[in-house]
Design a protein around this nucleic acid. Structure first.
Length: 522
DNA sequence: CGAATTTGACCAGCGC
DNA sequence: GCGCTGGTCAAATTCG
């Protein structure tokens, strides 16, 4: 618990723009990365220091830089290769070489072929690098455009001044565990199905960010929610009609069943001219509250730092797991409804499962923004997908198809659990081409948007960082086999990097909702 | 001494 | 109705 709390403070300090706590970030990375790794040199201490250096903030900048240098070096190499080629073909140098080495013409040709091969490989790499940069720029631009849309939307909403009817607060408080309910903002959970399933050209309306409505006391603009309740009410009817694939996942009911009933009722009521609030009153409360997002990551720390401030309010032994489950609530603002559960995996105790529920009603620091938007977007995926039954990625909608590259362990959806849950698994080393093609540019984009910014002084351009990560996940040939695992462990245990990866996933999820974006269609 | 954590008790939901 | 389980509360305890 000590470590966890200090971790939190570290993040708060980071948020305040202080340099404090960077060592603890490194320590966490170190702790998480070290245990499963056998030191190639057999010198444990040295290895640990090296890993910490690699992911510590200052060194991270340097770690990001090498790929460019490497690239430059490769360019130089290419030049030098060309020079050598010229020398060889030119006569004097070539003659010299041939004479010195006593190389026959056939071997010279062979060497020439190798050079050409290397050249073409370099050209391919350069081209690949260029493409990655282009994708990164496009993704970053799309991200900014979406952000702008969200801001505009929120401003529009503020102008129109939506209000939450009292009756819904009553419903919510009634559900509060049968006790005297705290007065919390009425948008407790906005992981509503109507908040997702965007139709083409309307995506901004669906992935709204709540920013300072009168109802929540004018919360500033970087508050993340999938959709405000009031907006959900507006959209719930029409979206059900527009998109027949939308499924309301209700606890204890088959999704299809609810969907059919809900759609029919909605349509009928709409046709009868009933008010929206009266319609949404009928929506199952569970749908409004119970969607969850679970993040699995390797970490020795008792809790993954996600940029938010949490207070533990309970601990329980859960059935089937010898590790206790800890309950936390967000304390960054009084009355913030967000809760999370933290539990170690029974099978592999180095894996920490963090389950989020709810949406923050306050501004978030960038790392927390990334995670919050990830959880929101992932929940959106869950609730928008058609899930006839059971677990897994199902349904053929655009969003879930876009998640498919991650289906091999990266992301999964469960609708059979008591609460519909999305699990983002960050414990596996990304190795597939799918991952590299789909995620890495987004990681770079997310990095540009969050990681670099949050670590003041990280001056490396995002594309450089993207390349660095690309190199890491590509497992350079000279690296030992465990390198990827170490990188993954470090990534998933570092608070800011976790946020960056989370944002990357969000970027993909969000990007999928935008047909015109950089990732295009399926 | 205030804030955070721990821990036993309480409550709701669910299955039998 | 009863027991089990998950989730939450709040008094007691610990910590900085």
């Amino acid at each position: 618990m000590e470590l966890g709390s200090s971790h939190l403070r570290t993040h708060v300090a980071d948020f305040a723009g202080k340099e404090k706590g960077e060592m603890s970030i490194g320590d966490t990375v170190l702790d998480a990365a070290s245990p499963p790794v056998a030191s190639p040199e057999g010198d444990g201490d040295k290895q640990r220091v090296e890993e910490m250096d690699f992911f510590s903030v200052e060194k991270r900048c340097k770690a990001r830089a090498p790929p460019l240098e490497e690239l430059d070096h490769k360019k130089e190499l290419a030049h030098s290769v060309n020079i050598g080629l010229h020398l060889q073909t030119g006569g004097t140098g070539g003659d010299e070489s041939t004479v010195e080495n006593g190389m026959p013409m056939s071997e010279e040709k062979e060497g020439k072929g190798e050079v050409v091969e290397i050249q073409s490989a370099l050209a391919r790499m350069n081209e690949e690098n260029r493409l990655l940069r282009e994708v990164l720029i496009r993704v970053a631009a799309d991200y900014n455009a979406l952000e702008m849309q969200i801001v505009q939307l929120s401003q529009q909403r503020r102008r129109h001044g939506h209000e939450i009817p009292q009756e819904d607060e009553a419903v919510e408080r009634k559900s509060y565990n049968g006790r005297v309910p705290p007065i919390v903002p009425s948008r407790f959970i906005d992981l509503s199905p109507a908040g997702v399933a965007p139709t083409s050209g309307d995506e901004a309306s669906y992935s709204s960010t709540d920013m300072g409505t009168p109802a929540n006391g004018g919360v500033p603009s970087n508050n993340v929610e999938v959709l405000s309740t009031s907006y959900y009410r507006q959209k719930s009817v029409s979206s059900r009609i527009i998109n027949p694939k939308i499924v309301t996942v209700d606890q204890g009911k088959q999704p299809g069943e609810v969907d059919a009933i809900g759609r029919e009722d909605s349509a009928r009521r709409e046709s009868q001219g009933l008010s929206r609030s009266s319609i949404t009153e009928q929506l199952p409360e569970a749908t409004m509250r119970k969607a969850r997002v679970s993040v699995r990551a390797r970490s020795e720390a008792p809790m993954i730092s996600d940029g938010c401030q949490w207070r533990k309010y309970g601990q329980k032994m859960a059935k089937g797991n010898p590790c206790p489950r800890a309950y936390y609530r967000c304390t960054m603002a009084s009355g913030c409804p967000v809760r999370k559960q933290v539990q170690r995996c029974a099978e592999d105790r180095s894996i920490l499962t963090t389950t989020y529920e709810g949406n923050h009603n306050h501004p978030l620091p960038p790392p927390a923004m990334a995670m919050a938007s990830t959880t929101s977007a992932a929940a959106s995926i869950l609730l928008s997908g058609s899930m006839p039954s059971g677990d897994g990625l199902m349904g053929g909608n655009f969003l879930t198809r876009t998640l498919m590259p991650f289906s091999s362990g990266m992301a999964s959806i469960s609708a059979s659990a008591p609460f519909p849950t999305v699990t983002l698994d960050l414990t596996h080393a990304p190795s597939s081409n799918h991952f590299q093609r789909a995620l890495l540019p987004s990681v770079a984009a997310a990095t540009a948007a969050n990681f670099n910014v949050s670590l003041a002084g990280a001056a490396a351009p995002p594309q450089i960082f993207g390349k660095a990560l690309y190199n890491q996940t590509n497992l350079p040939q000279h690296q030992p086999a465990s390198f990827n695992d170490r990188v993954t462990a470090a990534i998933t245990s570092d608070p800011n990097f976790t946020a960056a990866v989370a944002a990357a996933i969000t970027s993909i999820i969000g990007g999928a909702a935008t047909p015109s974006n950089a990732f295009g269609g399926p």
